[in-house]
Every structure is written in structure tokens, then in C-alpha cells.
Design a protein around this nucleic acid. Sequence first.
DNA 1: TTGATAATGAAAACCATTTTCACTAAGCAT
DNA 2: ATGCTTAGTGAAAATGGTTTTCATTATCAA
Lengths: 171, 171
Amino acid sequence: MQQSYSKRMPPRRPGPGGAKGWWRGRFKGCGYRFTVPRQVILDTLNRTSKHLSAEDIYLAVHRTCPNIGLTTVYRTLELLVQMGLVFKFDFGDGRARYELSRETHPRGHCYLVCINCRRVINADDFREKETERIKQIEETIAKRYNFRVRNQITQFYGLCGKCSQERTEDE
Amino acid sequence: MQQSYSKRMPPRRPGPGGAKGWWRGRFKGCGYRFTVPRQVILDTLNRTSKHLSAEDIYLAVHRTCPNIGLTTVYRTLELLVQMGLVFKFDFGDGRARYELSRETHPRGHCYLVCINCRRVINADDFREKETERIKQIEETIAKRYNFRVRNQITQFYGLCGKCSQERTEDE
DNA sequence: TTGATAATGAAAACCATTTTCACTAAGCAT
DNA sequence: ATGCTTAGTGAAAATGGTTTTCATTATCAA
């Protein structure tokens, strides 16, 4: 059923039918069916720039299609990650987060995670200026470790403004 | 029982009694007891540079002190993370990894995670050359997001040499 | 339209981690 | 040293995100 991760990709162009058409092509190209649940889950991810948990997605999807189960959400997400359409992250709060891989921003994410209140701040905008640098680093890594970088994530753990303030009051 | 994360730290010097003495001081300073399980767990982490899971630590500890339970390992690790003595990581394989925070290397870690075979390669050596850069980035983040960076982790997800090879053979 | 089978959903299983609670031992006061 | 207070511990149970099972459904090539 599940195919190997390594499949040829169709060209990265929206093609006729917009994103949906492109997704369909990707699925067909990998020998998968482009089913309703898969469409709806992709749509949900496409509609936000936030990092959603499986349950977030399930709840959002559930509003339009109450018949789609949590199991399917998990299975679809796993498949999407395998296909490289979605990135999976872990901020250490015990639940994975998912984000659609968009061509518009470089593959590389930057997050600030507050170790006190668990808030996650998306700092991708900052990261964009580093694109060149990252590319260099990826090349170095590819050479030194014989490793093909597909995605990259940088997490800064520390205290957010609010929690940092509380700390100061403590002392 | 558990104190707030933000406590004053004693000077970062080994002092009399080596690492053990310093740890004891840290514990006392925070109002915690420096118990046998806590010593043994710290010793275990100190003896390796690998990123161990809670179970890894439990098994290692269990050889010398079979009476130390897994629960205590979890509780101690949580405390050590809170105290800033240990870093907790997540590579997306469903179990957390722990590493002793050493003064010798900059607070900042770099890992390559193979999305196919799940192998984790430690690339800290590479990261060391970036220290200056990272410091700059931390400063920028502190200013822009009003965020106090405490630790930083960069993960490159992709295909390791072996899996990358398999992929090529596929095509 | 139809048939083969990939995909789905509900329920059960899984498993890392956390909580509960009765018991133990660290370390301060005596 | 000795006893006392209470932080710390361990075993077992609970939790909760994720995965597996299996009977049913829906996709799509022919």
C-alpha cells in the first residue's frame, strides 16, 4: 500500500486546476488515490500558515466533513509528510505539528519556543534573510556528512517577553 | 515542591569535589536534595556524549542501581531540564532525548536526522564554527521578538548516505 | 458499469510519559 | 548521633497522542 519515500516528482507547477490540480497530479504520479479526505485535509493546511496539530486539523475538517475520522487524518498526514508536501515538527509539548510545504518560502523554518508558557512564535520572516547562508550550510553538510538535506528547522528555546518579565520580578 | 524555573545560579565552576560537588551546590542552591538517584542519573549523562532516551538512561542506571525506577528517571530528567543542567530534544521518533549541558560547547546543537532510517547524526563539530553567527542571530531575536534565548537547536531532515544511495538505485 | 483493491472509520491496541499514593530517606534541629 | 519533617521515591494505574486491526466503502482502470 504505502510506497517508498523516494518517488519521482512531477514538475512543481500549479498546472490546470490550481493547487488542487497539482496535488491530484502528485498523488496520481505516486500511485495514490486523490480522495475526498485527502483533499479536505490539504485544503485545511493550505488555508492557514499556522502549525496545526493532528487534532486541530481533525476538528477543522470535522466542521465540513463530520464523517472523516481522526485515524484518517493521522494516516493522511503521514502520507503527506512522506510525499514531501507537508512538514512535521515537534516543539516538545507531546503533540506533533504539521505545516504545508509552500514553494514560496525557502525550505527552512525558524521557531522560538518558550520553555515556560510553551508558546511557539514563528520567526520565519527573520529566517528569510539567512537563505543564502543556509544554502551554504546545506552544501557543507551534504559534502561532509554525505547527507541530502530536504528540510531544515531551527528552534530557539528560551523565555518569551511575558515570561521573561515574570522572571525579572522574581529576583 | 517544584520551584520556579527562574532561580539564581551559583558560579559555573567545578569547585571542590569536581562536577559532583558543583551539582550538589546547584541542587542545594535551588532547595533540592542531592539524592543517590539524581547523582547516578547525572553521572550516566556525564559519561556519554550521546543523546539518550529516558529508557536508555533507565537501563544504564539499572545496572548499578536496580532499585531506581523509570518514574524517578523521568522526574529527575524533568528537574534537570528545569534547572538548565540538561537539554531535551525531540527528533520526531516519539521519544525524547536528553543530553548533559556542558560548558565546553556553546549552547547550540546541530543534528542531521534521516527521514528514512531515523538515524540521528550529531553535527555539533560543524556548528562550532558558526558560534559567532549564532550569537548575532540570538541578539537579533532577543531584540525583535523580546525573547531570551537559552538554548538553540538546528535539525536538518533529509536522507543519510545509505538511504540516499537506495533512493538513487530506485530510479 | 464493474471489479479489484486502495482507502476509510470505529474500536482496540500501543507506548512514552505522568499521576497517584503509600513508603523511604535527606538533612536540619536538637 | 538521633529523631523529625517533608522532599523524594517506586510500583502500579492512568493518561493521551498515535498506530493497528479489520470489516466496510469508494476510487478509478478496464
